[in-house]
Design a protein around this nucleic acid. Structure first.
Lengths: 213, 213
DNA sequence: GTCTATAAATAGATAGAC
DNA sequence: GTCTATCTATTTATAGAC
């Protein structure tokens, strides 16, 4: 339905979505959320499709009517997270200092991880990577957020708040790596620090480094 | 054989190791090296015992005469790496600045990782973790290197070269995390930097941070 | 599209001869 | 201790009725 075809003097024609179709979308959303949680909790290899079906409360065969493979399930969860990241980036005040935008991004990823909502895929699984890299929704979303963050990196290096000695791509990867950093999990397991403390400690080591200033 | 029982006026009695026993030890060494390489390359979940047996050139059933489970195989590889780490720590000049010792440790872990010789275990697999934590050789070795590195951390904070604002345990975890940091792998895949460049870039972000000094 | 039941393949682990 | 052959369990994925 192309809404631009609606008459100019009327309210935009609401896209007709049947009750049945809404239920399907809602179910797919529930599936992706369950996959997201299980991926964060156990990782791709230890997550089984049976678990997902059990968690959602439908039969496994029904799952396969929505997603044609376990890898597609994982990809859907990654697309969801990318979407959440895009929404978070859009919610940031546009006038803030570029360096503060970058810190906010790193903080958000650490928060997601500590909440157990950051899915982690094994970087060694080449089949899974290939599947993900052929997913247009994932690639597009990843490109968009990388462009936005990349712009902040260049701006922060230009205004002198971010070290110009580190190539922008290295900065980008270093920020992304906060999503799967094992340090927050270790500290949380130690039980000596609150989540907020952990986030501030990791952010400090990331931006200020270990050396004395 | 307790060598302290040897007569004082003779050379220490060499521990009698039969040719057969030597072959067995050599074979076990070959097994552990193969496991180490496969763990670094594919990770625990994607590594199969069949692969290990094929790589070593013996039957799978023979493998199980040496190691009673796949988890024991992984533990043996970790014990080996801990031993290599101990040997490296022992080779460092004792008079160097504590901060330089810490940098040398981080550099060594990055080197091992880039050479494809740093085994990585999934931190989410609790059964595997429990097995590892019940391994005395592993725990002892880990404790020893942690004590030594921990001493350098405290010394470097005392002499003012390492930030005193970061708790020593956080510093320790941050250093250990370099062993499974995904950033070096990403940069290597990009092909824009040599291994030495990558190591220096990661070390710089780790110790100097992303902010401008 | 959802279900039950089952296929098909894989992988960890073992039996038993030598 | 090494081998071939096999067991057993698990898991991804599908067939076919409704």
């Amino acid at each position: 339905m192309d809404q631009t075809l609606a008459p100019l003097n009327t309210a935009p024609t609401p896209v007709k979505v049947s009750f049945k179709a809404q239920m399907l979308l809602a179910r797919e959303g529930a599936i992706v959320i369950a996959v997201n949680r299980l991926l964060a909790e156990k990782g791709f290899d230890l997550m089984t499709v049976d678990e997902v079906a059990l968690d959602v409360g439908i039969a496994k065969a029904s799952l396969y009517k929505h997603f044609s493979s376990k890898e597609d399930l994982a990809a859907a969860a990654m697309v969801r997270v990318i979407g959440l990241a895009q929404a978070f980036l859009a919610s940031l005040p546009p006038a803030a200092r570029p360096l503060d935008q970058l810190k906010a991004v790193a903080r958000w990823m650490l928060q997601q991880q500590l909440k157990g909502e950051m899915p982690s895929l094994p970087s060694q699984n080449s089949s899974l990577r290939a599947n993900l890299m052929s997913n247009k929704a994932y690639l597009d979303g990843l490109m968009r957020i990388s462009d936005q963050i990349g712009g902040w990196i260049e701006a922060a290096q230009a205004d002198g708040t971010l070290s110009a000695k580190v190539p922008p791509l290295v900065v980008l990867y270093t920020l992304y790596a906060r999503a799967c950093d094992p340090v927050p999990g270790f500290l949380k397991a130690g039980g000596q620090h609150s989540d907020e403390d952990i986030i501030n400690l990791v952010l400090a080591t990331c931006f200020d480094g270990l050396n004395t200033r």
